[in-house]
Simulated assay, not measured.
Amino acid sequence: MVLPPGWVRIPLRGGTWEALDEKVFRGIEEIPEGVPREKGMAFRLAVRRRIGRMVGEARKAGGLDLYVPARARPGVLMAASFLVSELARPEGEAASPEVVLGRLAGDRRGGEGGALRGVGGTVAVRWEYVEPPGGEDVDMYARHVDYVLPVPGDDGRWLAVNFSTGGDGAPGSEFTRALAELFDALMTTFRWHVAE
């Protein structure tokens, strides 16, 4: 997957804390406007702690990788992230990926059904919806874009890729919708790599 400038991958199954230190804490090269220079270290620590909490939640959700913007653009950090997780087919479910995708497309998220899309040479189900504030770190409405897709050649394994953004604080604004479109553009670069 091709990431936009300033975004970093935090692996969740190994090397997590090293990545947080190197890519997030040290990776914040520019402190956002409005943060006094003498508060730069405190800002970096606060961002690292917040992303550290996101890492804990992502691991509980079965996450493989967490992607976050770690550089200010322009002068502010973007409130967005996405998580790649592995899903297992439910025990006793012997349906083909096509049947499962059809069922998933009927699921509703935020009142909307899913849509089928091509991703990485396979078919995925995509949802886009808005959720109200909730949880310790979520104090605004968030726009979500979720993809679920089968792992080619292994009918029992699936991936979920879940994007979330607070955007500019308004889930229906042009800016917030543009971030969702940016994520969709990232998903067009998704490719499978078979480990040898």
Rank of each mutant, 00 (worst) to 15 (best):
M41V: 15
P32R: 03
G102Q: 05
L77Q: 05
E196N: 06
E38D: 14
Y129R: 08
L149M: 05
P74H: 09
V76C: 04
I10W: 00
Y141F: 15
V119R: 00
R89H: 03
R108F: 07
M140A: 15
R177W: 10
V148A: 05
A170M: 12
E128L: 04
P36W: 10
P152W: 10
G169D: 08
V68A: 00
G110V: 12
M1I: 11
I31R: 00
A19D: 03
R108K: 15
R177I: 12
P90Q: 04
N162S: 15
A195S: 13
F163S: 03
M140R: 15
G52K: 04
A178M: 06
R143I: 08
E136N: 08
D139Y: 12
R26D: 12
E86Y: 11
V100E: 01
Y141I: 07
E57T: 10
R49F: 13
V35R: 00
V55E: 06
R44G: 04
L101R: 02
V76S: 09
V8A: 07
P69T: 05
R26K: 15
D107I: 10
A42N: 09
E18V: 13
R143W: 11
E33V: 13
V47S: 00
G15M: 08
R9E: 14
G15H: 09
H193M: 11
E91M: 02
L45P: 00
V35M: 02
K60I: 09
V125S: 01
T122P: 09
T16G: 01
F175E: 14
R50E: 13
S164I: 14
L12Y: 04
D168I: 13
R126L: 12
V35A: 00
K60W: 12
A61K: 08
L182T: 15
P152T: 07
L83M: 06
R157L: 14
G14R: 11
M41C: 04
V145C: 00
A19L: 07
G34K: 09
W127P: 09
P90G: 02
M78I: 15
G156I: 01
T176M: 03
P97F: 06
T189H: 12
V84A: 04
M41P: 06
S164W: 11
H144E: 07
R48H: 07
R89Q: 13
M187G: 05
G167H: 13
L87K: 05
S85C: 03
P11M: 05
T165V: 13
V47N: 01
T188Q: 13
P171S: 10
I51H: 01
M187K: 02
W192I: 10
F82A: 02
A180V: 10
F175W: 12
A58Y: 08
G6I: 05
K60E: 15
V35C: 01
R73Y: 12
A170T: 14
Y67L: 07
E57Y: 10
V123F: 11
M41D: 14
G52P: 08
G6K: 01
G134F: 07
V84M: 07
A124D: 06
G118A: 14
L104F: 10
V24A: 02
A180W: 09
G40S: 15
E22R: 15
